[in-house]
Design a protein around this nucleic acid. Structure first.
Lengths: 334, 334
DNA sequence: AACGGCTGGTTAAGCGGTTCACTGATGCGG
DNA sequence: CCGCATCAGTGAACCGCTTAACCAGCCGTT
């Protein structure tokens, strides 16, 4: 009763055409009716300016045409880019992205996921998020879940777009090792409750293999806080010769801290990022980073999600994204 | 019928307590029932794990607890930031942001606004968007519209958060003039169908007043395209001594183009931005820009929106954001 | 004693679609 | 010419919640 705005309803179209509401409903979705009445109904609907109410439709059919998108941390600029791209991609397919931001808090992810499920979204697209916790099962049971992220998730999903993190990490550490670096600090996103992420393990393994000292330091994505952490890292004795950041956002913090300390990035300290955000190439020196192909990721994620909703069986439920090193000027030999 | 997942329904709670569904409905919203039954119902609901279905509720009540947010162009990094902030802000008030991106296409804005209306969002929050076109009236009639943007909109709105664009533009051009610049190129977002935006007018007026030559050049926000445009600007003869960009994203394009041409920003050409995106301070030299106070904007926008939904009368329906020049190293005297 | 006014609750009518089960024609092979 | 499948279309039961309208007590008035 809240909004007494008179939308034209299905019933009115039915009356106008002298058909039953059922017939109209079918006709508008091109099912089960003769070509002729379909045309008649379409015409009448257009004349009356009828458009189906998504809410009513959702209640009756159980479908909403909304996809819940759960972002791990929208402070991360790259994730902002990804969300924007996913939103566009879904909209192109006449679906809406309901984007929620866990703000880097792993405990929050599940709560938000449940909220999205209660909103009756048709599917859930979780982006860099850790679906390791219990409770995800219950959600995956209720609706298709597509995961975009670091590592293969053993949870049941309708699809996964995976960054081959091990390959990316190996590539970067190999690269740094080749340049002669032996003391590397690795800035990782803060994720208090998940101490043993695969990424951390990959780093340790690669470091062991290469015989270099890699110190893992958790770091918030927000620039101010990242700068503060980077400040401490650059102040530490002995100073690492290189800093490897798990996201370009974190690398920006290192640039800021280095500038404050009058240290030259690419001269006094090497920096490598992990995303290839557009602005990274604008920095001085341009940030050497790892490109995952954001556009493709967004497209694949959307494709898998839509396929899952429509119940189509997809050829590849798992898409592996290979890393490409964008070698620029921020990392040099010691 | 689509999802046969058995949620607990209101009816089940009613049966469990021996009350009518109406009583339960009232009780859970703390209305019209005795303290005692309210407790009893709450308990039963908790025991059964009942949570109201938002869709059914929306259909019956006409309220969805979703706010439609229309972004003018999510290629702009600052708008990404703004959307993220608005999303957080609304979520904190138990509302969801349904964010759609017009991608810089003014013709698209109205279409998307209508889609949001049809989704029965409780309110519409339009961010840097031009609600000048016809058709907005019809939307404002159907639901409260809050505008965040450059200029005072004469359209009926439930609230406005306005960047005092004239003040910002004056400040920048005064500043550049004071530094001795007389030939300035102004990069403005592309908005084909709105040739006479207030901002353009402000620029012309200020330029006239100060006696400096200001050339307006439209430019897409996407970095690659912005770089291309900037390239042409920097190649032109005579080269402008300063480039004033209507968003920091555009300024990044100028940085990129300048680097290619081996021109030093702040040496061979001055650059001023218009947003103060976090990374702007990380560039070399740090970008001189105009800060509007993003956090406050997001908070005010959310406040106005929520107030409008709840029908509260607000004290200030119009919030004017004053610009602050963040004077850094990218603009210097000629 | 009759009356009016709470209080705490019930009944039932929606909200605007979807979809299942069913009916009346029509077409068609045998 | 009959039985049977097919096609178009209808009726009505939902989907799960909100809310206007009504009702039965109970208490305090005049």
């Amino acid at each position: 009763m809240a909004r007494p705005n008179k939308r034209t309803t299905l019933r009115e179209v039915a009356e106008a055409t002298g058909l039953s509401t059922a017939a109209v409903s079918y006709a508008l979705r091109g099912k089960h009716v003769s070509k002729e009445t379909e045309q008649r109904v379409r015409q009448a609907a257009a004349d009356l300016g009828y458009e189906a109410d998504p809410i009513a439709r959702a209640l009756a059919s159980g479908r909403t045409s909304m996809v819940g998108v759960l972002a791990g941390d929208l402070q991360d600029l790259w994730q902002q880019q990804l969300m924007a791209a996913i939103g566009r991609e879904l909209l192109a397919g006449d679906r809406y992205a309901l984007i929620l931001d866990a703000g880097g808090d792993p405990d929050r992810e599940l709560v938000l996921a449940k909220q999205l499920r209660d909103q009756r979204v048709d599917a859930l697209l979780v982006s860099p998020v850790n679906p390791g916790a219990d409770g995800w099962e219950a959600i995956a049971e209720a609706l298709p879940v597509v995961a975009v992220g670091d590592s293969l998730s053993r949870a049941r999903t309708a699809g996964q777009v995976i960054f081959d993190n091990r390959a990316g990490i190996d590539a970067v550490l190999d690269y740094l090792h080749g340049l002669g670096h032996r003391r590397v600090t690795v800035l990782t996103p803060t994720r208090p409750s998940t101490p043993d992420r695969p990424a951390d393990v990959y780093v340790r393994e690669a470091a062991g293999r290469l015989g270099l000292r890699a110190e893992l330091v958790p770091c918030p994505q927000e620039l101010g806080e990242a700068t503060a952490v980077a400040r401490r890292v650059l102040d530490s004795e002995p100073r690492p010769t290189a800093v490897f950041c798990f996201s370009d956002s974190l690398a920006y913090g290192v640039y800021a801290a280095a500038a404050e300390a009058a240290l030259g990035v690419g001269r006094d300290v090497s920096v490598v990022g992990f995303d290839d955000h557009p602005v990274s190439r604008v920095l001085t020196p341009p940030l050497t980073t790892v490109d995952w192909g954001l556009a493709a990721i967004a497209a694949e994620a959307a494709r898998l999600t839509v396929a899952a909703i429509e119940g189509k069986r997809v050829r590849k439920k798992r898409v592996l994204c290979a890393p490409t090193m964008s070698e620029r000027g921020s990392a040099v030999g010691v």
